[in-house]
Each structure stands twice: as structure tokens, then as C-alpha cells.
Nucleic acid binder design. Structure first.
Lengths: 131, 131
DNA sequence: ATAATTATTAAAGTGAACTTGAAGTCAAGA
DNA sequence: TCTTGACTTCAAGTTCACTTTAATAATTAT
């Protein structure tokens, strides 16, 4: 199994080399080095990056993803890690959804229904709708 | 009608004086000055700030709010301004909601159901669920 | 051998909406 | 008058996940 250059990894994982260097700088992935200093990646980094992208899609920050990998006792099963972290995240996401739904409401039922001629009037017009 | 100091306005509008100075710096609100240089605000600034906060709750950026006030021909009725700007914003917000719902799905149906022992396995385990 | 490509680093930049800090000035009450 | 407390400006800091830049070095292809 050949080792991969940073460019090859970037290509396969569909991200930029700068992102890989950034991940390394925060300790999220690691690479070995040639004598010259160039990075060489093991194939397994691709799985690691897939998991990182998966976690990002679920709304985790890179700091949280780092915690996912490194803040549990080494033998902790993956599903336990997800359990622990996904529960909290769900609460956050639900908050996000609620906020966005509230914005949608305000836009549809408030601002798009408004008949004020001046914006100054709107200081009252909307609040009257929510007693 | 007495004019208001920046501290009084901040108190009544529930924001910091730094926010008021920032709004002024970007041209969102204005204030007159005493000879000494201190700001004095007209009562009407409170309505203006109410509208700003309303628009922010609906998801508008301060740049967009500035456009709401200043980028239309002067006689444009408020409701027309809202119409124009709220439609686009609704599209954005719907996108936001979809993204958040997708995260929720992934958390609930993917990560919380996962039985993998290692995170490396998870590189496959989730994608298998979505053919 | 040489040209073209890809790699290296550290530091600074991005966007959004402010906040913080430093250093100094003004206003009002005792 | 003195002392608080509120005010002033300007620049830099905050958060997040990277990207960009610049100057240089190594690898690969011809």
C-alpha cells in the first residue's frame, strides 16, 4: 500500500490541501514526513476524513470532532461516543430549527402581511400581532 | 421632547453603547452632537432601533437592513420594501431549515443508531443507510 | 539538465456583528 | 473644586473553519 501525498489525499477527499494542513495544526489528523519534510499519508486517513465530513454534516465543530476522536478513554466504542455527543448536538440543532422557524413565521405572517407606509410605523405594527 | 444620551438610548433599546456607535459607523442610525462632541439622539431613534431589531429577528443582516432604509426611492412604502426583501430572505431561511432538518435526521437516524465499535467503521456504516 | 508541478512554512485575511481596551475628555453632584 | 461616572476615538480582538500569500524547496516529467 503506497503512501499518499497531500495532493492525492486532498483530491480523493474533495478538500483543499490547506484544509489538511489546518486539520494537522489542530491535531485532528496526522501525517508522517519524508526526510525533505513533505507529508505522506496512510490510506486510513481517508476513512478518518470521511468521518470528519460526516460529523460536520451533522453540525459538529472541528473542536467537537477532535473530542470525538481523542477525549474518550481509548477503548470507548464508537457508538458510545456518538451517543454522548449527538444528544447534546440534537438539542442545539432543535434550537436552531426553532429559531429559523420563528424567522419564517415573522417573515410570512408579519413582514409580508405588513401594510405600513413608513418603517417607523412598523415599530408597532408587528408587535401588535403577537399578544 | 428632550434629546437622549447614548447611555439612555442603549438602556431603552436594550443594547450596548458600542452597538450604537457601530450602527452609526456603518450609517444605520445617526445622532447630532453637542459642541463637546457627545451624541444626542432624537426620540425617533427608538423606533428605528425597534425596526432594526425586528429585521434582525427575521434574519436580515445589518447591511440588508441598511438597504431596507436607504436603497429604495424615498417615497417607497414600507410594505413594498418588506415585500421585496422578505421574499429573498424566505428562500434563504427555508434553506437554513432544510439544512438543520438534514442534520437532525443524520443525528437521529444515523449517528444515534450506529453500532460501530470504531470510528473508522463509521466511514461506511452511515452511507450504507442512504442508497 | 531543465522545466513544470507540487510541496513547505508562518502569518495574515475572510465575514458578521459587534466588543474590548487604551487613553483621554466632559458633566453633574457634594 | 473635586470626584465620579459617562462620554469620546481608534484600533484591535472575538469566533469558526478554513484560505490566501509569499518566498522557498522538492519532486516529477521531458
Amino acid at each position: 500500500m503506497p503512501e499518499l501525498t497531500i495532493g492525492e489525499v486532498a483530491h480523493q477527499a474533495k478538500l483543499r490541501t490547506s484544509a489538511l494542513r489546518y486539520y494537522e495544526s489542530i491535531g485532528l489528523v496526522s501525517a508522517s514526513r519524508r526526510v525533505s519534510g513533505q507529508r505522506r499519508y496512510d490510506q486510513s486517513v481517508l476513512q478518518r476524513l470521511t468521518v470528519i465530513q460526516l460529523a460536520q454534516e451533522a453540525g459538529f465543530t472541528v473542536a467537537e470532532i477532535k473530542a470525538l476522536f481523542f477525549s474518550f478513554p481509548p477503548e470507548t466504542p464508537a457508538f458510545e461516543r456518538w451517543q454522548a455527543m449527538a444528544k447534546e448536538k440534537l438539542v442545539q440543532i432543535n434550537g436552531l430549527i426553532q429559531k429559523a422557524e420563528a424567522m419564517k413565521m415573522l417573515l410570512e405572517e408579519g413582514l409580508l402581511q405588513c401594510r405600513c407606509l413608513t418603517l417607523e410605523e412598523c415599530a408597532q405594527c408587528i408587535s401588535e400581532r403577537q399578544p
